[in-house]
Design a protein around this nucleic acid. Structure first.
Lengths: 175, 175
DNA sequence: GTCTATAGGCCGATAGAC
DNA sequence: GTCTATCGGCCTATAGAC
């Protein structure tokens, strides 16, 4: 089957995420989302009857993407740790964008977004702990991943950060 | 001299930061800030002629607090690493609140906020590198601190995270 | 320095044509 | 399914009394 055109629904969610990530939730208005997705506001509101439904739709898509990512992490060639760290820094993937977008929403006291993010983190942690057999090490590596991710979303990424981390993890016989 | 009452100016900045941290920038409106600081909107705008000036005032205060923190880190009893890590998780200090508030602003494409945060991070990194004499280790520890800080601001804090980190750092002869 | 009143614009959402 | 037109509300900011 030929690849279908990206549906209006998906384009709207893409635009919502992009605006959240690049300009913050203040800028992610229905007007702005509709303009970016090239639909009228009325058209947008046909698919998502309220702004809140836009959030719900986004989080549902995020959870799907998250399940796929955890599976990929388990069977990654270079191992789960390397996969986790190298995807914590910005990769430009759709999943990345959805993750950062959800973080922006979570910061505004949205429990559904916080829960989705917490569940995703639990998934990654489970894989790390199983693979390493060491809770302290698994938690520390998860924190390093969070740090990489945080720096990236804040535009604070220091050069060579990932290389430095790999260097230190080799001293711990992890890589 | 007796402790002066907190000035209206400072109360307004306090309220602005608190709203940013607890409810996000969308909720940190002039109306909300004025109400929280118990001033009228007109009264608020006498001290800060525009919302942008509120941001400028907040960042100026943050830089003062940041310089004091770096100095404290240098001479901390348990050493800079322990000081840095234990203050990366939430301490409830005014400095903490200002830091998170600035991060919220930085996420909305505000270059002044991003610069202020980057400068603060440079200060901490300088102390860590000088103390450790090891750039890779210093960067990794900074990332762990960022991770602790990120988890905290997102309400994702895993129990015992700091203990796990100390455990791993002892294996590296850092603590 | 602090207040009330209000201007002018953008926000989320509805109604109804096509 | 997508559009235009429009409503009421909230946002930033100004004007001017006290």
């Amino acid at each position: 089957m030929a690849a279908a055109e990206r549906s209006t629904r998906d384009r709207v969610l893409d635009s919502f995420e992009t605006l959240l990530v690049t300009a913050g939730s203040r800028a992610a208005t229905l007007d702005a989302v509709a303009a970016d997705a090239k639909v009228s506001k009325g058209g947008l509101l046909y698919h998502f009857p309220s702004k809140d439904e836009l959030v719900v739709g986004m989080l549902a898509r995020l959870r799907e993407q998250g399940a796929a990512d955890a599976a990929k992490m388990r069977t990654a060639k270079k191992g789960p740790v390397d996969y986790y760290l190298s995807t914590s820094a910005h990769t430009g993937s759709d999943f990345d964008r959805a993750l950062v977008a959800a973080a922006r929403i979570a910061q505004e006291h949205d429990q559904r977004a916080s829960e989705a993010l917490a569940d995703l983190r639990d998934g990654w942690f489970t894989v790390l702990r199983e693979h390493l057999g060491d809770e302290a090490l698994a938690r520390t590596i998860q924190l390093i991943g969070d740090g990489l991710y945080f720096d990236d979303t804040m535009g604070l990424q220091a050069k060579g950060a990932l290389t430095h981390v790999r260097n230190v993890l080799r001293r711990l016989d992890v890589l």
